[in-house]
Each structure stands twice: as structure tokens, then as C-alpha cells.
Design a protein around this nucleic acid. Sequence first.
DNA 1: GAGTGGTCTAGACCACGAC
DNA 2: TCGTGGTCTAGACCACTCG
Lengths: 256, 256
Amino acid sequence: MAALHPFRRIADDLREEILDGRLAPGARLPSENELAVRYATTRTTVRKAIALLRGEGYIASAQGSGSYVRSRPALLMISTGSQWRSRRDGGISPLSAEFTEQGHEVEQRLLSVGEEPAPRDVAELLGLAAGDAVIVRRRRVLIGGSPMQLGSAYYPTAIFGGTAAAESRRIKGGVLGMFEDALAGRIARFVERLSIRMPTPVEASELQLPSGVPIARTVRVAYDARGRSVEVLVSIVPGDAYTFEYVIDVPPPAAD
Amino acid sequence: MAALHPFRRIADDLREEILDGRLAPGARLPSENELAVRYATTRTTVRKAIALLRGEGYIASAQGSGSYVRSRPALLMISTGSQWRSRRDGGISPLSAEFTEQGHEVEQRLLSVGEEPAPRDVAELLGLAAGDAVIVRRRRVLIGGSPMQLGSAYYPTAIFGGTAAAESRRIKGGVLGMFEDALAGRIARFVERLSIRMPTPVEASELQLPSGVPIARTVRVAYDARGRSVEVLVSIVPGDAYTFEYVIDVPPPAAD
DNA sequence: GAGTGGTCTAGACCACGAC
DNA sequence: TCGTGGTCTAGACCACTCG
């Protein structure tokens, strides 16, 4: 039953124990020296197996302490228009409402607010030229004390210049709520694009990601009733912590 | 400027060269022995740096040949109801239509069709008891010759027993097209959940994934006009090859 | 202080690819 | 055949955690 390579054999054994629950989330793996003895090999080979599992996201290692089976809260990110509408009417940030309803403690930190030249892709989505000034609001969201989202929201100055969106403080109901209430606009549609990749070193450190955890990057554009894009929200979230849900309504067949 | 550890230093240097284009996609990295000489260290340490970059998805290694900067086609997966409707009316599979329009060569292979006991989550979504028999159609989709999707579609026997859905051959327009045309049903809504994780060894080999590439798993439930779930489609795709797009319509505020 | 993971060296053999 | 990446051994030192 031995695999071709000792390090694979060790990794396969441990992975199996994790998947079938013999090694539960949070459990400590046997020490590297112990595994080396058990498999009659050297610590170097054991370490290679451990590194493989870490790369697959199964375990995290703590120097001086041990390697542990990882566990993550499962967050469900539901993106439907009616939910957004009803939560926005509740007066608090839709995102917070989302997760507090799911029983998680949410803390939002506004990192910075200011005008910056728009990145090329953002400018295009907002109908501006690259480098045009936009209002940027950056924040980090902590859930249960762990960083769970890095968000950068971009707003055209033509619409939001001089409003609360340009000020460095929280806005009750969010900027889009303010857009609907104070600016008499109406949000009619979001278009969201989601892509997946491994984090850059900076992202990994800001999200406190152990190695081997991919991130999801979403770019959400908000359109008002006239089809104008009024917000571009770029989010980076740990890929293994979220499930995204989308509802897609299908129109009836064309009449013959 | 040297980093704390030689292997980090080497990895950082190479990553930077990849990101700024000095090492273009497809380019071969210097050999391990060459890097060992250049950085005045051993091949073991160089290999650790290489392994790190491979784990981050930047490079792929070919035994006997070298390590190369990875490049992937960018596929856009657009999931909107109106697109589905118009493509389905075109008579061919919406998925194929999607990507052929984007200029990619699509080949679908039907792997198996048969009745199986429903997995717990699928049974729940179809309103069945776990273990009830369902029709399962498994397929693999190749784009440009590379495996780009593993799909398992589940159908309740109460609706699809005895129809073409239970037969081991392609259905023009897809099973849902058949549902609308031959069975007089109407698809009114999809609900899709997307999650991200590292692949299992089996998935990695079926999708020919180099290590370090995460996968996206989507579970899409199709509902008919009466709110019955008629299909559960579970897809596994290479995470780095796709961008997913969703449109979220927002209802107007409730009248006061 | 004992044990743990993190890193590195030095050298060996194997499997595969290109020439 | 020769260079490439893939694996393994044996042993060393460091940094950190915990009792």
C-alpha cells in the first residue's frame, strides 16, 4: 500500500486522517520527530509532507508548538438585490447586517478616505479617464476578531465630491444609502465579477493568511436607475472562509 | 537588501521578475544549479524557493526540462438569466455558446449517465431524502484542449425518469432545454453557490492542475416556474482560469 | 531547559527530456 | 549522453513555546 514516495505516503495518511475526522479541526499533529520515527525516515522528508498539507490548506504550523488541523468559520455571502434593499432600509451597513444575522461579530475599520488617481480598470468602470481623481474609501472588516475582508470603494467626485463620502468617518447606512437618501439617487443594479488567485505577500499579511490559502477578489459595480456607475467596490477576502450565493432570474421565453 | 532567509530572498527576486515582466509567461527560469551558484547556496535551498513560487501559482516545473512561468487563458463565465435564455433558444448548450463566443474551442465529453443514490446535500436541494435515486450525468469540458470543468448534474427521477436525460447521449440544447421543450416546463431561476478550496488529489489529476492552483466549486440549482428544483449542477473548475460575472438587480424602495 | 518547528548544508541516486 | 528537475539522507544550528 505504500505510495511511490515516502513524503506522499505520509501526506496521504495524514490527509485521510483529517478528512475522516480522526484528526479533528484544531487537533495537533504528531511532532515531526515522532513522524520521522514512525515512518522510518528523516525529519526532512516528514517536513516535506507537512509542507504539502500546509499548501493544500489543511494544516497550519506554529513554531515551538506544533502543527494543527485548520478550521475556518463558514461565512455565507448572499448577494441578492432584495436583501440589499431590505437591509439598507434597516439603516445599517448591508454587509454588517449580513453577517450579524448569521451570528458573527463584525467590526469594520475605516483605514483611509481620500482622493486618488483612479486605477485604469476602475476608471473604465466609472466612465472616467485613467488617472482622474476619485474618492477612495478603504476599510478592513474583522469577523470574530479575524481580518476577513479588505475593501476599497471608489466614487466619482462629480457625484460625491463635497458629500459625506469624502469625509473620513463612518456613514450610517453606507455611502450608497446616503446616495439614495441625501442625493435622491436610486441603486438599480450591481454587476459583480469574482476571480480567484493566491494572495500577494502584502495581502497575505494583511489578512493574516497562512500559506496555501487562496483569495477571492470581487469587483462590484453599482449602477443607478439611469445606468450610471456610481461605485466600484474592490474586495479581497480569504477564499476558504466564504461561500458566495447569487440568484439568477431567468426571463420567460420570447413570445412566438 | 537581503531578506532574512536565503530561500525567501531568491523567491522574492524571482517573483518580482515575473510580476514586472522580465520573466514573461512561458519563459524558463534559470536552472536550479545555476541559481544555487548565483546565490552562493545549495540546490536544496533553491528548490525551496522554487517550491514556494509553485505554491503561489507563479510557475510550473517540468522534469528534465525546467521551470516555467505559468500563463492561463482568462475565461469569463457570465451567469445571467437573459443570456441563458437567448443561448438556450439557439439550440446548443449555453455553456458551449458562452465560450465559443469568446473565441475558445470547446469540447464536451459525457463521462457517464446513470441512476445513483443522491448525496445528502443534493437530495436536500432537490427535496428528496438522502439516498433516493437520482439521474446523474457527469461530463468533462475541454477548452483549447485543456480540461476546464468537471460537471455532475443531478435530476429527480420523478420528472426525468424515462426521458432522454436518463440516456447516455448528448441532448441538443441540454437537459434543461429538453425540460422546457418536450416536458412543457419553464426554467425561472437559478441559485448558485460558489466556494473555493484547494483541489483533492483526484480533482488535481482530472483537471491536470499544477500544484498551487485552487479550484472553484459551484452548486447551481435550477428552479421551474412553480418553484420546484429540477436540476442540481455541481461544477469544479480551475480557479485561476475563470472570472465569474453575476448581475444583481435591485428592486425599488418600498412605497411609503 | 526540553521539545517544537524553521532553516541550511553536502552529497547521493533516480526519472525524464532534449540533443 | 548530459542536463534537468525530483527525492532522500544525515546532521547541524536557530527561534520559539511551554512547563
